[in-house]
Amino acid sequence: MAAPGISLDLRGLPPPEPMTRILDELARLAPGARLRALLPHEPLPLYPLLEQRGYAWQVTALAPDRCELLVWRHGDGQATPDDA
């Protein structure tokens, strides 16, 4: 089980604010923790930025206008979800 992480609801923000918030918050992500963000749509342009910075991610569609993004440091076994 991952350590307590960061949880954000970023629906209602125009681009690129959700991405800036996520990148800013990731800088303070503790080892073993995950960032969880609720978004109105899949943040496709964010993925290359996460990849470059050494993060892994998983997206789950919750509804047509809501998805959940989980981000953790690549190779952090404690933070990696069981189904990832």
Partner: peptide
């Protein structure tokens, strides 16, 4: 779903 987009995809 896990998306796979790499940097080279953006022109």
């Amino acid at each position: 779903m896990t998306a796979a987009l790499s940097l080279e995809q953006a022109p």
